[in-house]
């Protein structure tokens, strides 16, 4: 496979995954805030700020945000690089240039997705289309995942897309944790709501589509520690960082099946990062959550850079 095309496939995977997480974040935060148990969590400004923080565009001053403007910016603004519409455009652009390698079915689904987002009426979206739009984006990405899994030969093409998907998933989960961690810190105090029992942990789990799984596993209301443990360390939760790292490791082995010891290879680095988290326990992480977040994001970006150098260099 061409190095350039591999790079495109990798980023196609990342952009598909990214658009899903942003869409769900908007949806879950907006709708769960409507009937949140405390005023802080119900506050519209609080939610809008959280959204901007999550897409990497934090609001630092005290300016009052306008709901429609924020929603438009993150959803459909072609001039905001991190908007959903731009992520979908990028996903399709990358798919286009690798069109000969992916299945007709997958390409057609991406193309449909693109036309759906492109044609979505911005006015309707900011006024009453948030649910419809974000649900559709999330559902279409689920279809894409199905097409990736079901219509591609599970060879290097598949492995590269899955590497993109999983590195992005881990990254987005961490970003969501980061955003909700900040929300939980900011929301404490009102009505005696403690950090560890913040309502925001439930929202966090929903943002990661993991609330039901978590309830089934712990059978208790989520707390800071159980939520973080589940989303970071539980290898059986398909959205957890650990699960993503395992997937990344599995797929890099398809690209680089060598068993020889080579400390400069991407596979080696991934293995190293993966085993580090495999033997971590949650109390260690809880000691300094911010430090953990910074470190894991750094590791993920190092993996991505190393892959670029080893496989995508053209």
């Amino acid at each position: 496979m061409l190095a350039r095309v591999a790079n495109n496939l990798f980023w196609m995977g990342r952009y598909i995954e990214r658009s899903e997480h942003i869409a769900r974040y908007l949806n879950v935060n907006y709708f769960s805030s409507l009937d949140a148990p405390n005023t802080q969590s119900q506050d519209r400004q609080f939610v809008l700020r959280s959204m901007q923080f999550m897409v990497g565009d934090p609001v630092l001053n005290n300016e009052v945000l306008e709901e429609e403007k924020v929603l438009y910016k993150i959803g459909l603004d072609p001039n905001f690089p991190a908007s959903i519409i731009n992520n979908v455009k990028q996903a399709r652009e990358n798919a286009n240039s690798a069109r000969d390698l992916i299945s007709t079915e997958l390409y057609e689904a991406i193309n449909k997705f693109y036309h759906f987002v492109l044609k979505y009426n911005a006015d309707a979206f900011v006024k009453n289309g948030l649910h419809d739009f974000t649900m559709n984006v999330a559902e279409m990405t689920a279809i894409l995942r199905g097409k990736i899994r079901g219509t591609l030969l599970h060879d290097s093409v598949y492995a590269i897309i899955m590497l993109g998907v999983n590195i992005e998933r881990a990254t987005q989960i961490i970003r969501i944790i980061n955003a909700k961690y900040h929300d939980a810190l900011n929301a404490q105090g009102s009505y005696g709501d403690k950090f560890s029992h913040s309502f925001e942990w439930t929202t966090l789990l929903k943002c990661a589509e993991s609330y039901d799984m978590m309830r089934r596993f712990y059978k208790k209301t989520p707390t800071s520690i159980s939520t973080l443990e589940f989303l970071i360390l539980n290898p059986n939760c398909p959205r957890s960082v650990m699960n993503s790292l395992n997937q990344v490791y599995h797929h890099i082995k398809i690209l680089d099946p060598s068993k020889a010891y080579n400390k400069t290879s991407t596979a080696f680095l991934i293995g190293k990062v993966r085993s580090e988290y495999e033997y971590k326990y949650i109390e260690e992480i809880e000691e300094d959550i911010q430090l953990f977040i910074d470190q894991i994001l750094k590791s993920l970006s190092e993996i991505s850079k190393k892959m670029e150098k080893e496989f995508f260099n053209y």
Partner: peptide
Amino acid sequence: VELVEGRDLFVENDFVYMKTI
């Protein structure tokens, strides 16, 4: 077969190569 662009190819010692992973 592979679909390439010019930037995916290079010439060395008068043979043509494509840059793969």
